[in-house]
Write a protein that binds this DNA or RNA. Structure first.
Length: 644
RNA sequence: GCCGGUGUAGCUCAGUUGGCCAGAGCAGCUGAUUUGUAAUCAGCUGGUCGGGGGUUCGAAUCCCUCCACCGGCUCCA
């Protein structure tokens, strides 16, 4: 007998060789039906794998990450099996479970696979589910595994096996299909009740663009049909929030093929929104001791050679602008910091002056790869809410913390509750990627970690994600379709002060080098607005929304009164429109509801007589009458609450 | 940049075994109606079918090429 310790600490005795499934059965039939994988002494196993020693275990069901992953992983195998049957001779790369669902990278040789093939694959998968196949695990030697896949002429699996250690290699077999795999897997394919192959895409083998591109098929699967349906409905809902769709519908921004790829054109309503955000941030920054500066859109190439950006990005960027004068070269500015360094240098600084905080809504241009462009989130010309803080080394942490405070304030006001803070450090094994001394890197990394801890941020740390000149703290949020985007960023930089030979005079009357913090709480105005659109579904907070109210006269007879109210409200700084089209009231309400204008103000005979307006709240309906003056104070109170 | 897909009116889309002057709804314009809380009626305007080249008696439809967009991969100062 062996002792099995359950997560609650209780210990049960089972015969040697007991399986997770048997343990589940001994607890309850229901659990046995639902269990998908088991953690045995910290390792995730199949529920049919015998346990031969004392162990602490945890059983995983669908509600558990580990359970889902076994489920999706087996689904990937199921798909691969179908593919192998339908397209004999294909070679398999890797087929893992992911955050939601699974994929498999497959080399189809000369055959081109498109969306229409997915249905065929799904049908074949369904066959295998209807006649369930058991999935069995076998442990094999490295030599055996290598021989198996050399015989199958699958170079990808051979490469994977070569990197594995002998004694740790397992194969999983279902029907005619065998796959190299660490597991765990479900006992058989019968529980994969509902699945859908979502899309098809190219993916480089091992993520390296020098390698061959394989065909990646993405899918999701669920133990119940209803869960799949829910998921598909959720995807549809998410699409409705897509900022590219809403941006068009709400007339916020557009693109023009003629102007150029990735160069957004802000329409009046979008520009209005963006300006509100900028004013909002400027006000905060003023409180935090920032000074606004303005710098030009181009700079001499030499400026970026000095900063190091040219060496790093020059060849992949917009190429230099040449002038009639021989030898003159200018770059469209890809960064504001070199300009700001020169502003810092324009006069001598005492240690008493520091920190110097220079802020600018600076528009920069970067030649992003064409396949990378995406709505407003990834563009070639964009405006950073940039600032550079030049401070003494002893002020670094305090300044860093203050920037965190600004970011957190913005997130609070705009209701971003789900974000992650990511600390990006350098990869010590990849020196080529970075510039600067070890000592400075260590100091900078320590400052970030301490500052984040001081504000109690829950952070994830990514090694190798640092900028080439320094470590950073990024705030990430998800878009409507689950993609992660970096918004705010705070970066420590010892390098640029070095390169630009920035100095201040210390209390000791000697020259010292300041430290720089790059920071952009929004990141870029374009990306931030995109994420804000998706976050709010286009229903912006009252203080931000381009049009706050629209006056709707019941008929043309009341246009004069409506215009009087319009003037009053606009003079009271309520951004108000009038809809005096010759349409029925129902039509005008519908149209303005769809524009997501927060307040619809209906005026008819009753309102004219009583000198009031009937207030209708977007999405909620009629709220009764009030006087225009009361409406103004009501709106102002609402806005004040939102900005607290 | 790479793989796959898509591109028809301002917007959403129909039309593709090649064949009547390329269609609809919404938007816009004109007129009627003067409206009380999510679509009043009628008429009209609007398209070099993404650009260019080719095949054909004939191309939105087939082929080539370029461009843009979409989904990924790689990249992101």
């Amino acid at each position: 007998m062996i002792n099995i310790t359950l997560p609650d600490g209780s210990i049960r005795q089972y015969p040697e060789g007991v399986t997770g499934l048997e343990i589940a059965k001994s607890i309850s039939e229901r659990l046995a039906k639902e269990v998908l994988s088991i953690t045995v002494n910290g390792e995730v196993w199949d529920i049919t794998r015998p346990i031969n020693t004392n162990a602490s275990i945890k059983l995983h069901k669908w509600d558990d990450e580990q359970g889902k992953h076994a489920f999706w992983h087996s689904s990937a195998h199921l798909m691969a099996e179908a593919v192998e049957v339908l397209y004999p001779g294909v070679k398999f790369g890797i087929g893992p479970s992911i955050e939601t669902g699974f994929y498999y990278d497959i080399d189809f040789g000369d055959k081109t696979i498109s969306e229409t093939d997915l249905t065929k694959i799904e049908e074949k998968m369904m066959e295998f589910v209807r006649q369930p196949q058991t999935i069995t695990r076998s442990e094999v030697s490295k030599d055996f595994a290598l021989k198996t896949y050399t015989d199958k002429a699958d170079p990808y699996k051979v490469e994977l096996i070569s990197d594995l250690q002998d004694g740790t290699i397992s194969l999983y077999t279902q029907g005619e299909f065998t796959d190299l795999c660490r597991g765990p897997h479900l006992p058989d394919t019968s529980s994969i009740k509902a699945f859908k192959l979502i899309n098809i895409a190219g993916a480089y083998w091992r993520g390296n663009e020098k390698n061959k591109m394989l065909t990646r098929i993405y899918g999701v699967s669920f133990p119940k049909k209803s869960l799949l349906d829910e998921y598909l409905v959720m995807l549809e809902e998410a699409k409705k929030r897509d900022h590219r769709k809403l941006g068009k519908e709400l007339e916020l921004f557009t693109f023009s093929q003629k102007v150029g790829q990735g160069l957004p054109l802000w329409l009046p309503r979008g520009a209005q929104l963006r300006e509100k955000l900028e004013t909002f941030l400027k006000k905060i920054q003023k409180q935090y001791g920032y000074d606004q500066v303005i710098t030009p859109h181009i700079g001499q190439k030499e400026l970026y050679v000095t900063s190091g950006h040219y060496a790093k990005y020059g060849k992949d960027s917009f190429q230099p602008i040449h002038t009639p004068a021989e030898g003159e070269e200018f770059l469209l500015k890809p960064m504001n910091c070199p300009h700001h360094c020169e502003i810092y240098k324009s006069k001598p600084h005492s240690y008493k002056d520091l920190p110097v905080r220079l802020a600018e809504f600076g528009t920069v241009y970067r030649y992003e790869q064409s396949g990378e462009l995406h709505g407003l989130t990834r563009v070639r010309g964009f405006t950073q809410d940039d600032a550079h803080i030049f401070c003494r080394p002893d002020q670094l942490k305090e300044e860093f913390v203050k920037v965190i405070d600004i970011v957190l304030y913005i997130f609070r006001v705009l209701n971003f509750t789900e974000y992650t803070a990511q600390i990006s450090l350098r990869d010590p094994n990849d020196r080529e990627k970075y510039i600067g001394t070890d000592e400075n890197w260590e100091k900078a990394e320590r400052a970030i970690i301490e500052a984040a801890a001081e504000r109690g941020l829950s952070t994830v740390t990514e090694i190798g994600e640092a900028a080439f000149y320094g470590p950073k703290l990024d705030f990430m949020v998800r878009d409507a379709i689950g993609r992660k985007w970096q918004l705010g960023t705070i970066q420590v930089d010892y390098n640029l002060p070095e390169r630009f030979e920035l100095e201040y005079i210390g209390a000791d009357d000697k020259r010292h080098r300041p430290v720089m913090i790059h920071r952009a709480p929004f990141g870029s105005m374009e990306r931030f607005v995109a994420v804000l659109i998706e976050h709010t579904g286009g229903k912006f907070p009252l203080w931000l929304t381009p049009d706050q109210a629209v006056i709707i006269p019941i008929s043309e007879k009341f246009n004069d009164y409506a215009k009087k109210v319009l003037n009053f409200l606009n003079n009271s700084d309520i951004r108000t429109l009038i809809d005096d089209r010759n349409e029925k009231i129902g039509k005008k309400i519908r149209d303005n509801e769809l524009k997501k204008i927060p307040y619809l103000l209906i005026v008819g005979e009753k309102e004219v007589e009583s000198e009031q307006i009937a207030v209708r709240v977007q999405g909620e309906g009629d709220k009764g009458q009030m006087s225009p003056a009361n409406f103004v104070s009501f709106i102002n109170e609402e806005i004040e609450k939102q900005l607290k």
